Amino acid sequence: MTRPSGAAGTTDELIQRLYEQPPDGFVAARTAAIDEAKRAGDRDTAKRLAALKKPTVAAWVVNLLALRRPDLIDELVDLSAALRDAQRGLQGDQLRELTAQRRQVVSALVGAARKLALEADPGAKLPLGEVEATLSAALAEPSIAAQVRTGRLIRAASYAGFGEVPKPRLRLVSDTDDEFDEEAEDDDEGGEVVEFPQQSTRERQAAERRRRQIEQRRRELRRELGAAEAAEHRADEQLERAEGAERDAGHLVEDLDAELAELERRRTEAQADVARRKQARRAAEREVAAARRRVGDVQAALEDLESGEPD
């Protein structure tokens, strides 16, 4: 089937509306949209809609922000790029300034997202911690920022890379103290701790142990992430099967309801026909009784006439 011009844009607008509304109504709205597309013969749209997944509450809140206030997400992305440039250059003053700015931006974004969510669903319980974690992850990872920009997240995101998102880990070594004044870590894949010429052997050994611990933890987290993603994939498939079964069962119920309605209509008509035939039978019975009485009367008159004739 050839779709009319502008159909793709219309479908995108429909998808946006689905992701803007509270998650509780997502499945029902998606099913209604799929059924409408099928009735219109638009199989491509029905297939696109069927592939959509229900977002968590936290993902919905972030989607609202991305769809209704994209300017704020642009500000987040710009700050992310500036922060990465400062981290690569190890510019301490600029890092501190950007870190403070980042906290302010994330806090403002969470507040704006909360306002939008409560306007859409005043009684919603909002997991603002997950919302904040997702926005912080978008600051750290351009790929996550790109996902946030789409407005089609299905679950909250978190930063799974090296280091701690909310607080850059730049470690500066003091001449007189074994403790670190500030924390930071390199932005490259190796994740090596920055060392300065004045580090002692003991400090370098401690830094090396820390690097090995972090690398081991990184490997563990990656294994856990792989297992979690596999479990997520299985759960998504199970959800899709369950939703498909739910739709099929709903369609069956609708078909049975239609059949029941037709049978009820036919039953009502049959009852009316029985009543009409009963009335006709009673009328016929009355006619038979009248005819029999007439026959009896005529026979009696005939007998009286014959009995009165002379021999």
Rank of each mutant, 00 (worst) to 15 (best):
T2G: 11
L14D: 06
G25M: 00
T31V: 05
T31I: 07
D42N: 10
V61Y: 05
V62T: 11
N63F: 00
L64A: 03
L65I: 04
L65K: 06
A66N: 04
L72Q: 09
E75N: 01
A81P: 03
A81R: 12
A81G: 02
A82N: 08
R88W: 08
G89D: 12
Q91F: 15
R96L: 14
R96D: 14
E97T: 03
L98V: 14
L98I: 08
R102E: 15
R103A: 05
V106A: 14
V110C: 02
V110K: 04
G111W: 07
L116A: 00
L118V: 13
D121S: 06
A138E: 02
L139F: 12
L139K: 01
E141N: 13
S143N: 04
A146F: 03
G151A: 01
R155L: 00
K167D: 11
K167V: 10
P168A: 05
L172M: 05
V173R: 15
S174R: 11
S174K: 09
D175E: 14
E179C: 11
F180I: 08
D181S: 11
D187T: 08
V194W: 02
P197T: 04
R202V: 09
E208A: 13
R218P: 06
L221K: 07
E224S: 03
A227L: 10
A230Q: 04
A231F: 08
E232P: 01
H233L: 04
R234L: 15
D236T: 04
Q238Y: 06
L239N: 08
E246N: 01
V253Q: 12
E262M: 14
E264M: 06
R265Y: 05
R266V: 00
R267V: 04
D273I: 07
D273T: 13
A275P: 02
Q279D: 13
R282L: 07
A290G: 01
R293H: 13
V295R: 14
D297L: 15
D297H: 14
Q299M: 04
L305F: 06
L305I: 05
D311P: 10
D311T: 02
